[in-house]
Design a protein around this nucleic acid. Structure first.
Lengths: 248, 248
DNA sequence: ACAAAAGTGTTGTTTTTACACCCATGA
DNA sequence: TCATGGGTGTAAAAACAACACTTTTGT
């Protein structure tokens, strides 16, 4: 538990370092072996779970801020965070505004910019910061109650992710460098929450041209060894810009 | 031209009324008779063109703020504004920060939330506010130089609009209550910047189920009278949520 | 040799595309 | 009556869905 004095020191500092009224919250979806999770923090000072979030420094681009915040709070580095929505209801931080009454940083209204990311949770080691007792992956169907409007932020991120699945490539930051087709399919199935046909999935995803088939196979597992693939970064990024389906 | 005193009065007021560091900019696309335009303001105090923008009041939801700002600055009412991106580079308002140096509202950094809308420019009467000499529709291929990063904001809005065209219904705020198929097609062609096949367009757009065919035709024009359609609001809004193509 | 996972192929159906033809209207 | 815009239809191509069969590997 942090002492009142420690907190007050942070607040005094926060007023100098951070912009007022603006926060960033990150929804980090983790995926591994057919399981999907989301990264959450448990506060030291409250019995409450949060998405990792923070504030923007005075001379810092918001994209940089998002990366820094996620790193500060969870130890995660070098992942692609995508802006997805701004949450600007004046009452969204009401609980905090009342809880931290008085003339300090937390008593003000915050408009929060939501970022989301997909990562392989197996290669990430979540590390709690000073304010948090726990930093951990939580299963999507075993979520704790969220503090503030973080449930809405999480839900919006998930909806965005599902929508983007149909017109943008996904998985680059989430899959390891080399992966098999069944592994990628599991990702899609997990996000969508339904089974897909193995053969049709393969045909379709290959048709996008964002994958390179490698000569090696993944040995060691039982049964027939699947081929390895990697993302073709050039085509992948082109597809991020152009979208996957021409549409009209 | 506003006097220095008038401006300083506004700034003094602004500090009390508006949140620091946050602004909203609106990209209002207008469409009529096959022409696409964007709504812009010319400043009284600078030789510069802007997108209509403004600031968020202390206790105001950002969606409400966007509506109010657009109304304050251009007289436009009751249109659907859609959040599309946040522009948070610390240097984006550099020109203003230097121009309005000293301890006033404009000297600070602003992070801007971008909203866009589509309207029928024929039924809108753009009215400049106190700060603007001109408020008018500008042709997409005859744009003045933008102030600040407003060209980037405009460009991002247009890219977003084109992308959304393929997975979201558009046109409700833009078309009149009743319209013909060729009129709607012109909208799509204008946004996409290319011709579409008349018959295939009709089949496809009808398949979405967002249109109601009316018994009347549009008389008066030369040649065969086209049928009138209107949006089926219920299906339209469902499609806004669900997207138009299932995808996977 | 067998079960389970993965590679590859086929077939019928639906959707898209690229057209052709007919109708209505004003000049 | 003719040029033009608009309504409707259709055949070929492409894309998709559903499914079967073969190959590989550990047990």
């Amino acid at each position: 538990m942090l002492t009142k004095q420690e907190l007050e020191e942070f607040w005094a500092e926060a007023n100098k370092v951070y912009l007022d009224h603006i926060s960033i919250d990150c929804v980090v979806f983790g995926f591994h072996g057919g399981q999907m999770k989301v990264l959450m923090l448990k506060s030291k000072n409250e019995e409450a779970w949060y998405l990792p979030g923070g504030f923007v420094q005075h001379n810092e681009p918001i994209e940089t801020a998002a990366d820094r915040i996620l790193n500060d709070r969870t130890g995660i580095e070098e992942i692609f965070l995508q802006q997805f929505h701004v949450f600007g209801d004046p009452d969204r931080t009401k609980i905090h505004n009342e809880m931290y009454q008085g003339n300090n940083f937390f008593a003000q209204r915050f408009i929060s910019i939501g970022y989301y990311a997909l990562v392989d949770f197996f290669i990430v080691n979540p590390t709690p910061d000073t304010f948090s007792e726990v930093c951990t992956w939580r299963d999507l169907d075993d979520l704790p109650p969220f503090q503030l409007d973080h449930e809405r932020i999480f839900r919006t991120a998930l909806d965005t992710l599902r929508l983007q699945l149909s017109y943008q490539p996904i998985g680059y930051n989430l899959m390891p460098k080399e992966f098999t087709m069944p592994e990628l399919q599991k990702l899609y199935e997990t996000i969508l929450g339904k089974k897909l046909d193995r053969r049709n999935f393969q045909r379709r995803i290959l048709a996008f041209g964002i994958l390179d088939k490698l000569p090696q196979t993944r040995k060691g597992g039982a049964h027939k060894a699947p081929y390895l693939y990697s993302f073709n970064l050039e085509n992948y990024q082109a597809a991020l810009k152009e979208g996957l389906k021409s549409g009209w």
